[in-house]
Design a protein around this nucleic acid. Structure first.
Length: 99
DNA sequence: TATTTGACCAAGA
DNA sequence: ATCTTGGCCAAAT
């Protein structure tokens, strides 16, 4: 049985390197408004290494949470060319990936 | 089956 | 600009 979360993870896997998407966009792509449930899915995501959950951020360009700490999330993004300043993504609109 | 829980969001103060 | 509030939806308890 494919749950809502499974779809979210499958979708998240397709986010290209150096780009980010939002919890809202993910939910929208699935014709749903459960952006909150999406956050939940990432938090307890069982496919930790295969799903790039660090590329999913808040709709206003702030980082949002991260299981291993928001700081770690910023570092991972920085390695892919997405710079973060004071918890906010620089050029967010420009790096945002849409489905 | 019912209640609780968030890695959220938009609108007010 | 920051902080609080209420609403939102699927999953886990």
């Amino acid at each position: 049985m494919i749950t809502f979360n499974e779809k979210v993870w499958e979708l998240a896997k397709r986010i290209p390197e150096g780009k980010v998407t939002t919890y809202r966009e993910l939910a929208r792509a699935l014709n749903s408004r459960a952006y909150r449930a999406v956050g939940n899915a990432m938090h307890r995501n069982p496919y930790a290494p295969v799903v790039p959950c660090h590329r999913v951020v808040n709709s206003d360009g702030t980082l949002g949470g991260f299981a291993s700490g928001a700081v770690k999330k910023a570092e991972l993004l920085a390695e892919e060319g997405v710079k973060v300043k004071k918890g906010k993504i620089i050029g967010f609109e420009r790096k945002l990936h849409r489905f």
